[in-house]
């Protein structure tokens, strides 16, 4: 957990607090959150449900206000690159736009001419094998395909950092494995800075360079683990003995938090 290394971190969160003002008084969702994510690093955040990990991601995305503290995303050399793009758990691709229009949406909002943005979108659809579904509407494709579209929409936007909020959470187990491998492949190719929220410990260990473990509400960082598994990774990585070790080590702490979270809900 060394935060003082020389190149400026891509994402820098310092003493971040989030408090919700509810009718029954203020509720702390995120408490004293400090995290640096290096350029090109893949950081996964796990924690019991309701621990505020999605809230933190939305604060990084600027979709939610920060009560105190600061979050900065360091801009790169290219000027008009968007600072972040979110992949939502509920896909959030627009039902009224075709697949290719959805993928080109971010570029369209930035005023990229139609020819150019559709070209970019098409090449991304090609990379995930969705080229022939370009003119379909979302209701005509499966859940796995929708989430592919949602991921590719973010990548086509070419942001400084990619923020993924339980992107595979709504998918069935098999589709999930396929998309995890696809994510690994694309990440190897692009080396984007990724902040990845998940409730699956296996997923976090498989994908992440580091795994951040959050406590039950209010969300604080309990521990940050460096995952030294070799890259490129794939589904085969999950059979390595080191994988099992990492999983067992983190699960020890996570299970205690999950139990605590369940007790708090009673």
């Amino acid at each position: 957990m060394n935060t003082e290394t020389t190149p400026a971190p891509k994402i820098r969160a310092r003493a971040v607090y989030k408090t919700y003002d509810t009718a029954s008084g203020p509720t702390a969702a995120v408490q004293d959150f400090n995290l640096d994510v290096a350029d090109g690093e893949f950081v996964a955040i796990v924690g019991p449900s309701g621990c505020g990990k999605s809230t933190f991601l939305r604060m990084v995305a600027g979709l939610e206000g920060i009560s105190s503290g600061s979050i900065t995303i360091t801009p790169g050399p290219e000027k008009d690159r968007p600072s972040n793009s979110v992949v939502f758990q509920e896909y959030a691709i627009f039902p009224w736009k075709t697949v290719i229009e959805n993928v080109a949406f971010g570029l369209q909002m930035r005023g990229i001419p139609a020819r150019e943005r559709l070209e970019v979108a098409r090449s991304w659809l090609d990379r995930v094998g969705l080229a022939k579904f370009a003119d379909y509407y979302p209701h005509q494709i499966s859940g796995g395909m929708k989430q592919r579209v949602s991921i590719v929409r973010a990548l086509a936007n070419d942001p400084e950092v990619l923020l993924m909020d339980e992107p595979l959470g709504a998918l069935d187990a098999q589709t999930r494995v396929v998309l995890q491998e696809e994510l690994l492949r694309i990440w190897e190719e692009t080396r984007k800075t990724v902040l990845y929220i998940t409730h699956s410990l296996e997923e976090a260990v498989l994908l992440g360079d580091r795994v951040v473990l959050m406590s039950a509400q209010p969300g604080r960082i309990l521990e940050i683990y460096d995952i030294g598994l070799p890259r490129p990774r794939s589904f085969g990585t999950t059979t390595l003995p080191e994988f099992a070790e990492y999983r067992a080590m983190i699960w020890d702490k996570l299970s205690a938090e999950v139990t605590r979270a369940m007790e708090m809900q009673k």
Binding site: L63, P82, F88, F105, G106, M109, N157
Partner: peptide
Amino acid sequence: MAGRNYGA
């Protein structure tokens, strides 16, 4: 949220 996040 998606609309805003993608710069609309």
